[in-house]
Amino acid sequence: MVRTAPTRPAASRTGRLRTREALYFHLFLLPWMIGFLSFVVYPVLASLYFSFTQYNILQPPHWIGLANYRHLLTSQLFWKSLEVTLYYTLLALPCTLLLGLLVAALLNLRVRGLRVLRTVYYLPTLIPPVAGALLWTWLLNPQFGLIDYVLQRAFHIHGPAWLASPTWVIPAIALMSLWGFGGSMVIYLAAMQGIPQEYYEAAQIDGASPRHLLWRITLPMLTPVIFFTIILGLIGSFQIFTQVYVLTQGGPDYASYFYNLYLYENAFNYFKMGLASAQAWILFIIILGCTLVLFRSSALWVHYDH
């Protein structure tokens, strides 16, 4: 690039280069822009419009104002699905986080076979959700499942009916998702390995104990990554669908009737596209709200180095 442009011709040359560069910028962005307009912007606007209509795809949408939203907010099933989803999130998210941090911290002691262990813990996240859910249907089977066998051998108790029990179905699904905690664990481990060694050495020379190192250096340095995984985990667990569809179809007695399962059934079983769109927008607003609150709270507990 021309650093100084004392004469006018050079300045206009820089300007020409700038325009050319901007032209290429948009050229390279073109595929994304086409996709963004047709698969994101248009759908978002259309979905917002649909949410105020009655629409079954066969007939054109019919404007009904806020009726869909009013219907949802007074529907017992809607609140049930929201409650189920929140309960699952509150159960699965903290457990995944704590277990991920714990295992990452242990691996970060540079134990032997770190790579192999890390791969083993990461393995379940690679399994396609349908295959994983089928495997867990079998594991959780109260008659011949592995989990019941372990409970009997180790604690001499019969496990509950898991997926057939309204009380235990959500903990069972949370347990299944906990199996995939390796996904966030590798992120924590990478972040821990990225903490400069000098911090620890300096603290040790000052006589800090291992507990101090953990609470005063490792955890504060990890807070940005923890923040990131909480947001992604929240968005992900609010939207869980495949596992539930395969495991329980929402049963027994709506005990695992997750938000997106209800949405899917409205959209593709009953073709209530307007109602389903309203559901999608309510979820979007909930997710935005939670993210906003988390961002606000981040000033209190997230430590940024720079």
């Binding site: 994101v40 978002v44 939207q239 949405l263 979820l283 979007f284 993210t291």
Partner: peptide, 16 residues
């Protein structure tokens, strides 16, 4: 777009 739940775009995409 990362924040957008897939369900928001799912139905219009299906229509499209």
């Amino acid at each position: 777009a990362l924040m957008l739940p897939y369900t928001v775009t799912m139905i219009p995409q299906y229509v499209l």
